[in-house]
Amino acid sequence: MTAGVLDLPIPRESLSRRFSDALFRRQGLLLTLLLVPPLLWLGIVYVGSLIALLLQSFFSIDEFSGTIVREFTLKTYAELLQPANLDVILRTVVMAAAVTLASAILAFPVAYYAARYAYGRMKAAFYLAIMMPLWSSYLVKVYAWKLLLAKEGAVAWAADRIGAMPMIDGLLSAPLIGGPSLSVSYIGQFLVFIYLWLPFMILPIQAALERVPGSLVEASADLGASPNQTFCTVVLPLAMPGVAAGSIFTFSLTLGDYILPQIIGPSTLLLGQAVYVLQGTAGNIPLAAAFAVVPIMVMAVYLLAAKRLGAFDAF
């Protein structure tokens, strides 16, 4: 088995070495062994349940008995398009878009600093600061924010101390997005969504920016571009794949979340809550399924648009 000519001791012939030999000669076998378990998982558990969900959305519910009628119909989708339900969808998509946009704007400078200027300890500190919120429980964070944003909470207290209370009151008196306090308004909901998903935006942007060689920025300046022009024509286009990846996270996570809007924000439902309520207390599985199809469609449209706009061209 040994083709070497060196006068070194030959490793003991073991079962694992023979196994390695077999895999070395048959690369296809290795690939099969590595891919079958995840493919089974993805194929059956994930895609399978998605198809089941899709099928459910084409069933309907008997209005008198409340049982599911297992016959193909578009009745459920017609129900989905009723104004009250469209409201839920619209509200959620607007919230997700706003959260995504704000996250991208907030994340970019942070990611840019980390990718271009942070080295050694600063970089470690950066990763720690970004990742640490992800280590603690989601529920703990959301409840903590509820307390912080409450009428008598820390935010209001601090604002009162520095005399910024009129500003918060002004914000809260705004139509639609306002409310009696931050914790029961869309503004509060928006803030906490950003807090939760920001790391998912920062990390992909940072990864994309790290792959932009510093010499490209210098070359741009060398060719006469001001920092502003360099940012718009070189840095941003090359970071777009990262922004797109990050926005997939922030957008889809906001579209599907059903816990945060229960705890923070007004009593009106977001999409995730609608699914939760419909499949639980209301027992309307077909409509819940139809609602669950919406984020999939929205994401598909979003990704197609991003591709059209050239967000992935840098690859």
Binding site: P213, S215, L216, E218, A219, S220, A221, D222, L223, G224, A225, S226, V234, P237, L238, D313, A314
Partner: peptide
């Protein structure tokens, strides 16, 4: 005087061509 105001141009060692 910043690089973008200098009447010199550079050919970089790694060429620094814009990939996009």
């Amino acid at each position: 005087v910043p690089p973008y105001r200098r009447a010199v141009n550079t050919v970089f060692q790694d060429y620094a061509l814009f990939p996009h």
